[in-house]
Design a protein around this nucleic acid. Structure first.
Lengths: 245, 245
DNA sequence: GGCAGAAATTAGTTATACCTAATATTATGA
DNA sequence: TCATAATATTAGGTATAACTAATTTCTGCC
């Protein structure tokens, strides 16, 4: 009975046999990243709810995955039924690694390959999962180990440490307080194009001249000259500043 | 009965709902590439057998996938039960696109990021599936649209056309016929390191001085000087040459 | 303290892409 | 030409990671 004698050799892909056991899947990465962002600097517990909304999947899928992440050895999250999750140390490390990948790739695309700053996020979102440590190290070296990405976000160090830059949203800024833009959200390309057209980016000096009524637009002066522009609320929520001078 | 009212919005991932319908999967890419290589320049039909061995999976998996590739709309392969497959035009185009990605990325890793030539294949094998057309275009532009990768393989043009370089293996070369190395196989890093140590790469001049008995090593002169080295059969099969002078 | 609604979990389904085992087809050589 | 070996296909199973639907748990308010 000749039966597939040739195929007894070791298969190389995701079968029950011979997994490299090395890296987490893209899906796992995305969950860890989501929990990382949602738990914020205080590292509070995150509800399945929030993760589902963030990743645009159902809560059932989230519950399912959280159980796997918690059952992993070592556990990537600390999970309690009906009471959300928190990243365990291995999960936190991996999350920071991906953030480092993402921001290094964004910076590389922008500085070395000449991408516009509204184009880098989408490409980095895909590539962050697939670049090797060597690739990461080489692009970082090529750029002189940058500390910040094109949107002004800090790039975590190899050990996972991230400099905590103090910053606030524009609407938290006192009127007539001169401030410097620290970072802008990279999620919405259209907004990034608009901000670029307004001359707003990390380092830009701005001053809120007046909060206009009904929580709508703000009157803002850009730089040191007299000209002023109107920024609407969603825009100002995407721009983070620190008081200057 | 409150039941997941929030989750009725469009999910974004690989569910039964709302696929972007755009790109083939990594697995599909790998099959197309395998068929592309195995069918050779003559584009002969390829047996499930060969694909299975090439991808190191079982023939059952291959049959399964070939049926999907043939059932795709438009069909990516022309498949006849028990009589192998051939790439249809859409499949051929995609295969060439991936080869272009692979070789551009290899060249980029080598020329821009300073990877050694034995390190580029593994990284390119992963990244080739995930880079965008923009990324491809930018790295190609940055390198001045190179025609060949670090191993001497031609990089397909955007339209899929590949210059057919005439080449032969070392053991097809007449004794004492001076020849120039055109390309070397990129699959085996150890061999690439060995070849580099011997000073053999695309452009290297070499002359087979003698075929030693029992199909073992060959005596080969490298360059124009008098020194000679012994190359074993597996090595010479990985080096492709064209007569020179 | 109990009940309605929100949130989370479980159960069962789908699709992809692999697997093994059994069966069927094709090719080869005595 | 026909038996056997080589190849290929089918059938049924696994794991991942999404889904829907049904059920359970928790929370806030009266």
């Amino acid at each position: 009975m000749a039966r597939e004698a040739k195929n007894s050799g070791s298969p190389r892909k995701a079968g029950p046999v011979s997994r490299p056991a090395a890296h987490s899947s893209e899906a796992v990465d995305d969950y860890l990243k989501a929990i990382f962002w949602l738990s914020g600097p205080e590292e509070r517990r995150v509800a399945s709810n929030e993760i589902a909304a963030y990743l645009r999947i159902t809560t059932a899928s989230v519950t399912n995955m959280l159980q796997k992440l918690a059952a992993a050895r070592p556990p990537l999250v600390s999970y309690q039924k009906h009471h959300g999750v928190q990243l365990a140390d291995p999960g936190k490390l991996r999350a920071r690694e991906i953030v480092r990948h993402h921001r290094l790739v964004e910076t590389f695309l922008h500085d070395v390959l000449g991408y516009a700053w509204d184009e880098v996020h989408q490409e980095a979102e895909r590539l962050e999962h697939f670049i090797s440590e060597k690739f990461e190290e080489r692009i970082a070296a090529k750029m002189g180990n940058p500390q910040f990405d094109p949107h002004g976000h800090a790039i975590p160090a190899l050990d996972g440490s991230m400099p905590q830059v103090e910053q606030m949203t524009v609407h938290q800024l006192p009127v007539r307080q001169r401030a410097r833009v620290v970072s802008v959200s990279d999620k919405d390309p259209e907004m990034l194009r608009y901000l670029a057209a307004q001359g707003i980016g990390p380092g830009t000096l701005l001053t809120v001249m007046e909060y206009l009524p009904f929580a709508g637009p703000y009157r803002v002066r850009i730089g040191r000259n007299k000209s002023e522009v109107l920024l609407s609320l969603p825009l100002t929520q995407a721009v983070y500043v620190a008081p200057a001078e």
